[in-house]
Design a protein around this nucleic acid. Sequence first.
RNA 1: UUGGACGUAGA
Length: 316
Amino acid sequence: TIFYNVMMKSLRNGKQWEVLEELAMEMIEKGIQLDNVSYSTIITCAKRCNFFDKAIEWFERMYKTGLMPDEVTYSAILDVYAKLGKTEEVLSLYDRARADGWEPDAVTFSVLGKMYGEIGDYDGIQYVLQEMRGIGIKPNLIVYNTLLEAMGKAGKPGLARSLFDEMIRSGLQPNVITLTALIKIYGKARWARDAFELWEEIKSNNWPVDFILYNTLLSMCADLGREEEAEKLFDDMKKSELCKPDSWSYTAMLNIYCNGGEVEKAHELFREMLGSGNKLNVMSFTCLIQCYGRAKRFDDVVEVFNIMVERGVRPD
RNA sequence: UUGGACGUAGA
């Protein structure tokens, strides 16, 4: 069994669903017992290959064999239903499993929290927090990250901040994902002051930073029209080793200049981007085309479009 | 180390 499980794991990493399923069928034909590791590997492979129906099919097959799912298999299948947006199924499966004496763990709650975040269900998030406390599970870093982001999606930036504070008080160090999520939440709440305060705190605490975090700050600046701060951040990126600007960074900067009507700056930056060796994407072209369109520079619109086609970027 | 959960852009 372990041999097959290891095989299936590597197939899963290569997203080879068809081959993996054949192997699983072979196990059944040869009478080799599938255990929870086998089933959870099968389920997550199907999920990663977007064959959600297959994931459910295999879970039901497991159920029929009478093998009890363990906490890993449960979270794996709950995540499948959650990603399908089948909230009812998630909850009924959760309740049924609880009734069978199953003890959920931190991963379970991050799956549930993520689901409620996606639908912006504040009461759902509270339910997760309450269940977690009731069972006596201490949230780990990922659970905090998930719930914090969910609070943001439910339109509760203040509560997201409270969770962040609670996390720090509990002695957990935030990672770059925590910080990026918070910055995005503050940006969407138009809390620029809080976001920049957090940015200072990040630097003074030596908390981790990467190019995605920078990009998140840049998009916030774009949304809120904070050109000066953005230019400073963009400059930092160019000077840094690990956080070089990518096409997302350029797109954010182009947005700032376009929204500010600074067509020349946008044009100059666009040239820089073309020469930067970055993979180009539709977003930056879309932005620039709009910019020229608004400035009634239609010859430039055509030129940008032609460059886009030349560079092999497909319009969507 | 046989298996599960988290972060960035345009219209």
